[in-house]
Simulated scan of single mutants.
Amino acid sequence: MRTRLLVTSAVLFLAGIFNASAQDETRLGAMLAYGTEIENLGIGVNAEFPIMENLSISPGFIYYLPKDQSGIDLNWWEINGNANYYFIDNERLVFYGLGGLNYSHVQLDYDGSQFGGGSMEVSDGRFGLNLGAGANFSIGSNITPFAEIKYVIIDGGQLVIGAGVKFNL
């Protein structure tokens, strides 16, 4: 709970700083994602704050839906801080490369009392690197559909495929 409060505060603080300098191009969005390591669907939020021509900062958060495997509950979420570099920009389609930092948190809960055993909870957090690409699709409104694919370089690694919409502020 404390971590979520800190993350939310940091995102809002950054939003305030960048919103003052690039208000007309700032975007907030929502997405669905699939992680290959967890093999599950996630929901997420992200933002884009332009800092230079063709470059933006893009913080994001993905919460993967909880999973129950043989009495073990798995909870997984990740925080991302990426830089997006736009290298192809035409009227309808904008491609970008992305790179940045990732923090992934995994928690396992086991309740063995039904089998005569005890309960156990284990959690771990790791830092990794993101490398990937994405595309924004212009539909002529304040809503911008997008798609991204990234690889998280971390123990075991994870490919994350995501799609959603960004709202221009």
Rank of each mutant, 00 (worst) to 15 (best):
N142Q: 15
A20F: 13
I149H: 07
F127C: 08
A22F: 10
N40V: 05
A30T: 07
L32D: 04
L93P: 09
I57R: 06
M120F: 14
Y34V: 10
D155S: 14
E121K: 15
P145S: 01
Q158R: 14
Q158C: 10
D73Y: 00
N136G: 12
M52E: 11
S104G: 10
A83E: 09
Y86N: 13
G112P: 00
Y103V: 03
F13W: 00
P66E: 00
N75W: 00
G116M: 04
R4L: 14
S141D: 11
E78I: 08
G125F: 05
Y110L: 10
Y151S: 03
L28N: 08
S56F: 00
G99K: 03
F167E: 03
N142E: 13
Y63R: 13
L129N: 08
A33Q: 02
G140P: 07
G162S: 15
V94R: 10
G132K: 05
N130M: 04
M1I: 10
N40T: 12
S123H: 05
F13Q: 00
G99C: 00
V45R: 04
K166S: 06
E121I: 15
D24C: 08
Q107P: 11
A135S: 09
I153K: 13
I79P: 04
L28I: 09
L101S: 02
I17H: 13
R4T: 13
L28R: 10
F115P: 11
G125N: 03
S138G: 15
I17M: 13
E25Q: 11
G60F: 02
G128L: 02
E25P: 09
I72L: 14
F127D: 00
D89V: 15
Q114H: 03
V94C: 15
L55Q: 00
Q23C: 14
P66A: 07
L93R: 14
K150L: 07
L169C: 05
F87M: 05
R92V: 14
R126H: 13
G157E: 02
V152Y: 03
G60D: 04
G16Y: 01
E78W: 00
S104T: 08
T36E: 10
R27H: 08
Y34C: 04
A83V: 15
M52L: 12
Y86D: 15
Q69F: 12
I57M: 12
G132R: 04
Y96T: 05
I153A: 15
V45M: 14
N82G: 09
G99E: 00
G81P: 06
I149E: 01
D109M: 08
S104R: 08
N75T: 11
N136K: 14
N168K: 10
S119P: 06
G71I: 06
L65G: 08
D124N: 07
A163V: 06
N54P: 11
S58H: 06
E48Q: 12
L98Q: 07
A135Q: 03
G118K: 03
L98Y: 04
N46H: 08
G112W: 05
G134Q: 02
I153N: 13
N40A: 13
L108N: 09
L14D: 01
N46M: 05
L98D: 01
G125L: 06
V106G: 03
I62Q: 04
V165H: 03
Y110W: 12
